[in-house]
Measured scan of single mutants.
Amino acid sequence: TYYTVKSGDTANKIAAQYGVSVANLRSWNGISGDLIFVGQKLIVKKG
């Protein structure tokens, strides 16, 4: 599943929404920190 980042989103918020850990969200998308951008497409695997 892909999720498009919206204004006000955070890695924590997206992870919680899908029931996954922030560490997994980072791993699936090659993100090292919490910096995400509006319009960015993230791979999300439901927990």
Rank of each mutant, 00 (worst) to 15 (best):
S27G: 08
V20L: 09
V38Q: 07
I36P: 05
K41I: 15
Y18S: 05
A23V: 10
I36S: 02
T10P: 01
D9Q: 01
Q40H: 05
D9H: 01
I43D: 03
G19T: 05
V5L: 00
V22P: 07
L25Q: 00
S27C: 14
L25F: 04
Y2Q: 07
S7Q: 14
D9C: 03
K46A: 14
D9E: 03
V22N: 04
G19V: 04
L25I: 09
Y18L: 12
I31A: 05
W28N: 03
I14Q: 00
Y3G: 02
T10H: 04
G47H: 12
Y2E: 08
A15W: 02
Q17S: 10
N29M: 02
Q17F: 12
G47S: 12
G19W: 05
R26G: 06
G47N: 12
W28A: 04
S32V: 15
I14S: 00
V44E: 01
N12I: 14
A23T: 10
N24M: 13
Q40S: 07
D34M: 08
A11H: 07
A16Q: 12
T1R: 11
V5C: 06
Y2N: 05
T10W: 03
Q17D: 11
L25T: 01
Y2S: 07
S27E: 15
T10N: 07
N24R: 08
I43N: 04
K45C: 12
L25G: 01
Y2K: 06
N12K: 14
T4Q: 08
I36M: 08
A15P: 00
Q17V: 10
T1G: 10
R26Q: 11
K6C: 10
T10D: 08
A15H: 02
V22I: 12
S7Y: 14
R26P: 02
I31R: 02
N24D: 15
A15M: 03
K46Q: 14
F37G: 06
G39R: 02
G33Q: 08
L25D: 01
Q17K: 13
S27A: 14
G39Y: 02
A23I: 09
S32G: 09
N12L: 14
G33V: 09
K45F: 14
Y18K: 04
Q40L: 07
L25A: 00
V22D: 04
G19E: 08
K13P: 00
V20R: 00
K6R: 10
T1D: 12
S27P: 00
N24K: 10
A15E: 03
I14F: 01
N29I: 02
D34G: 08
V38I: 11
F37S: 09
K41W: 06
V44D: 01
G39M: 03
G8N: 06
I36N: 02
V38P: 13
W28Y: 04
A16W: 09
D9N: 01
T10K: 04
K45H: 12
D34Y: 07
A15Q: 01
G8Y: 05
D9R: 00
G30N: 15
G30L: 07
D9A: 00
L42K: 01
N24E: 15
S7K: 13
G30I: 06
Y18A: 07
D9T: 01
G8Q: 05
S32K: 13
R26A: 11
A11I: 15
K41L: 13
L35I: 13
V5M: 02
G30W: 06
D9W: 02
K13C: 14
K45Q: 13
Y2T: 09
S21P: 08
K45A: 13
V44T: 05
S32Y: 11
I14W: 01
T10A: 04
V5S: 03
V44M: 05
Y3K: 00
K13I: 10
K46E: 12
K13Y: 09
A11Y: 15
Y2C: 12
K41M: 12
A11K: 03
T4S: 07
V5N: 01
L25P: 01
V22C: 06
S27Y: 11
A16D: 11
F37T: 11
N29C: 03
I43T: 06
Q40N: 05
A15T: 03
L42H: 00
N24W: 08
G39S: 04
I14K: 00
I43G: 02
K41C: 13
N29G: 02
Y2F: 11
W28K: 01
A23E: 15
I43S: 04
A11G: 04
Q17Y: 12
V44W: 02
N29A: 02
K6W: 03
G33D: 12
Y18D: 01
T4P: 03
D9F: 01
G47W: 11
V5P: 02
N29L: 03
V44S: 01
G47L: 12
W28T: 03
Y18E: 06
Y2I: 11
I43Q: 08
G33M: 14
I43A: 06
S21F: 04
L25C: 03
T4N: 06
S21G: 05
W28L: 06
L25S: 00
Y3S: 01
S21M: 06
I14H: 00
V38W: 04
S21I: 05
I43V: 10
F37M: 09
T1Q: 12
I36E: 03
